[in-house]
């Protein structure tokens, strides 16, 4: 289907980015410390940006190049800086994170989710180009895995980073299936991500100050008794 040799190189690189992107989702589950989670998130965003740029070359879409630039600025540079400013205390607490379900079982569950995503995407991508066939299942899988990570993580910041990873997954799929998505939509999403970091970062600092830790998973005062 792809004839030009350059195209096949670009496709291969795009697939590679997809693989690394998915690995970062797994890393977010397995990371033992808050800073580790953060590094995996930043890496994932970097791969997202690379993939956007590669897809931009494949689809001749200048929008996607701008999108890649926006990702780099917002997610790779701004978010770590913002987080370090708003949630410094929770961030530098160097202790091992607790999880509701252990890391190996979580990884296996995440693998299962990847398969589910693959089979959901399979009928939709029939006849689509190779970017879509890779992007949609990987993006869906990243969304599912990140949603699962939110439920097993008990600390505020890892939960928040998984939340942002969902957005990454959505856009990994989005860049592939809708390369001409209005730029205003991408900007809206990035604005939203930054607001999430600001608001939840400040909130987690408040939680940290009032409770001494950020194990929000063990907050169970409220509830219908």
């Amino acid at each position: 289907m792809v004839t030009h040799p350059i195209m096949s190189w670009l496709n291969a690189w795009n697939q590679l980015m997809a693989g690394f992107f998915l690995l970062c989702s797994f890393g977010l589950i397995a990371a033992a410390q808050v800073t580790g989670c953060m590094r995996f998130y930043v890496l994932q965003s970097l791969f997202l940006a690379c993939s956007a740029a590669l897809l931009g070359m494949l689809d001749n879409s200048t929008d996607l190049f701008m999108v890649a630039g926006i990702y780099i600025i917002a997610k790779v540079i701004l978010i770590p800086v913002l987080l370090k400013r708003t949630a410094r205390e929770a961030m530098i607490a160097r202790r091992e994170l607790v999880q509701v379900i252990g890391v190996p079982s979580s990884l296996l569950i995440a693998l299962g989710l990847t398969l589910v995503a693959y089979y959901i995407a399979l009928p939709l991508t029939a006849g689509a180009n190779s970017g879509t066939r890779i992007g949609l299942p990987i993006g869906l899988a990243a969304v599912f895995i990140a949603a699962y990570t939110i439920t097993v993580r008990r600390e505020a910041l890892p939960q928040m980073l998984s939340l942002l990873a969902i957005e990454n997954g959505a856009f990994f799929a989005g860049d592939a299936i809708a390369p001409h998505f209005p730029l205003i939509g991408e900007l809206a999403a990035v604005f939203d991500v930054l607001m999430i970091v600001l608001v939840l970062g400040v909130l987690s600092t408040q939680v940290h100050r009032s409770l001494g830790n950020t194990t929000v998973g063990s907050l169970a005062q409220l509830g219908e008794d």
């Binding site: 997809a18 890391v103 190996p104 995440a110 693959y118 066939r133």
Partner: peptide, 24 residues
């Protein structure tokens, strides 16, 4: 007891390799 996590990650990477092949 964290070694399980390390090798679990290796397993995930290996399976991801297989999935990547399947998806293509």
């Amino acid at each position: 007891f964290r070694i399980t996590a390390f090798l679990g990650l290796a397993l995930v990477v290996a399976v991801a390799a297989m999935l990547a092949r399947m998806m293509r």
